[in-house]
């Protein structure tokens, strides 16, 4: 039953175990070399393992056998996007959405391809794809390693000879982490305000863009007013609270629907309540 190996491959892919996903997909293909699910998962695992030309060849063959499969077109689009061929990627995503307008995998690919038209975002997209390829253990190592490096740099900053070098580094690191948390929703926001880009966002991305945009908009208005109004520390606090609140707000729609999303929405709501009551109190 190649379908069973396809399911195993999908599960391993979801666990970011690219090599195991590839093995399961290839075991399924040993029984049926034309199995669409196994071929798709084989290509997805190959892209994650950096074997892009093999992934492209797999998708070429799969599409040649069944040119009307939406998932195969979406997969071809992602493979092309990974190879930096944006125009071809967009053509495949559009074809995938024409066959199945509900294909979220193709829609998110089209969004990424539109974003990649922006040269600043092209660099960030490469960064996000690279981050997406790391196993969950490596991602935790980066977070913890960054924290350890931060502690070390703070100690170094205590020495006056090092201070002028260390402070900009710490600011750059904090800025890097903040941007890595907010880059995706900020560009969703840019798409949201774009007449064409709006249609490429799904409902989740639209809600997230509206939430993050609202929080950042309030922060900008309050921050801007604080320059005009004298003795305006309340406005500065309001700008800080609503600006920082955009971080947990942007995380809500990253969580799976159901209890994880409700939990994250609850956390963000509780933080908003604490932050705004602190502001009112002060």
């Amino acid at each position: 039953q190649p379908e069973v190996y396809g399911t195993i491959a999908a599960a391993e892919f979801g666990r970011r175990e690219w090599r195991r996903a590839l093995e399961a997909a290839e075991r399924g293909l040993a029984f049926d070399a034309e199995h669409v699910t196994c071929n798709n998962l084989r290509a997805m695992a190959l892209v994650r393992l950096g074997r892009k030309s093999e992934a492209g060849a797999t998708m070429d063959a799969t599409l040649a056998r069944d040119p009307h499969d939406s998932v195969s077109h979406a997969n071809m689009g992602w493979t092309k996007l990974e190879q930096g061929e944006r125009k071809e990627a967009m053509a495949h995503f559009r074809e995938a959405l024409r066959i199945d307008p509900g294909n979220g995998w193709a829609r998110s690919g089209l969004v990424e391809a539109i974003k990649a038209g922006n040269p600043v975002y092209a660099i960030m997209l490469k960064y996000f794809l690279w981050m997406g390829k790391l196993s969950s253990r490596t991602m935790w190592m980066i977070v913890l390693g960054g924290y350890v490096a931060y502690r070390f740099l703070r100690q170094l900053a205590a020495d006056p000879r090092w201070t002028p070098w260390v402070i900009p580094l710490i600011i750059a690191y904090v800025g890097f982490v903040l941007l890595s948390w907010l880059a995706a929703p900020l560009f969703d926001l840019a798409l949201f305000l774009h007449p064409m880009g709006k249609h490429a966002l799904d409902d989740d991305a639209r809600t997230r863009a509206a939430l993050v945009g609202g929080a950042l908009g309030l922060a900008l208005v309050a921050g801007g007013l604080s320059f005009v109004v004298s003795d305006s520390y309340q406005l500065v606090i309001l700008a800080l609270v609503s600006g920082v609140l955009s971080i947990p707000l942007s995380a809500i729609h990253v969580c799976a629907e159901g209890w994880p999303r409700r939990a994250m929405a609850g956390i963000a709501g509780a933080l908003a309540a604490v932050g705004f009551s602190a502001w009112i109190g002060l």
Binding site: I267, V274, S277
Partner: peptide, 30 residues
């Protein structure tokens, strides 16, 4: 005043909470 101290504590709790929520989000994210 007591109200001011409480508000400051809430503000500190807010910023700590933001940090902790990132770990929660990492864990809850798909």
């Amino acid at each position: 005043s007591a109200a001011e101290t409480l508000s400051l504590a809430a503000l500190i709790l807010f910023f700590l909470g933001i940090f902790v929520s990132q770990f929660a989000a990492n864990w809850l994210a798909t």
